[in-house]
C-alpha cells in the first residue's frame, strides 16, 4: 500500500513539473513617452528573468518582472539591480521595478485596456507596493 502511495506522489510531482513548463515568456511593452529600446535591452540581457512588462507613462517608468524559480530567493536584490540600471539609462524618469505578481497583473491590465486615468492607477499601484504586511 505504501509503495502505491509513493508512486502516486511521484506521478503527481512529475505532472506538476511538466505543467510548469508552459508559462508565457517574452517582454510586453507599452510606450507613450520615451524610447523603450534601452529598457528592453537591459531586461533581455538578464538571464534570470523569464518575462517582463514595461510601461512608460508621462514621468513614470514601471517595470514588472518575473524571475525564474530559484532566482526568486534573491528577488529583492534583482529588483534593486535592475532599478539601478534603468535609472542610469532614464535619469529623467521615476523608475519603479517590482517582481511582485501584482505588478505584472496590473500592468498587463493597463496595457490591455489603455485606460485614461492611468496616472491615478499608477499612483495607487505604487502605494500598494510600499505596504508591508
Amino acid at each position: 500500500m505504501e509503495g502505491m502511495l509513493i508512486r502516486k506522489v511521484l506521478l503527481l510531482l512529475l505532472m506538476l513539473v511538466l505543467l510548469s513548463g508552459c508559462s508565457n515568456h517574452g517582454i510586453r511593452i507599452h510606450n507613450d513617452s520615451a524610447d523603450a529600446s534601452k529598457a528592453e535591452e537591459i531586461l533581455k540581457k538578464d538571464q534570470r528573468l523569464t518575462s517582463a512588462v514595461i510601461l512608460f507613462h508621462e514621468k513614470d517608468l514601471l517595470v514588472g518582472i518575473d524571475v525564474d524559480t530559484f532566482s526568486r530567493f534573491h528577488k529583492k536584490k534583482i529588483e534593486k539591480e535592475i532599478k539601478k540600471k534603468l535609472e542610469k539609462s532614464y535619469p529623467d524618469l521615476t523608475v519603479t521595478v517590482s517582481a511582485d505578481r501584482k505588478m505584472t497583473i496590473v500592468l498587463d491590465k493597463l496595457i490591455r485596456k489603455n485606460e485614461k486615468d492611468m496616472g491615478k492607477k499608477i499612483d495607487q499601484l505604487k502605494s500598494l507596493l510600499k505596504e508591508e504586511t
Binding site: 510531482l13 506538476l16 513539473v17 505543467l19 510548469s20 508559462s23 525564474d68 524559480t69 526568486r72 505578481r101
Partner: peptide
C-alpha cells in the same frame, strides 16, 4: 506558474 509547485513542495 512555478510558484504553485514550490508552494506545494516547500
Amino acid at each position: 506558474m512555478s510558484i504553485f509547485i514550490t508552494a506545494f513542495i516547500v
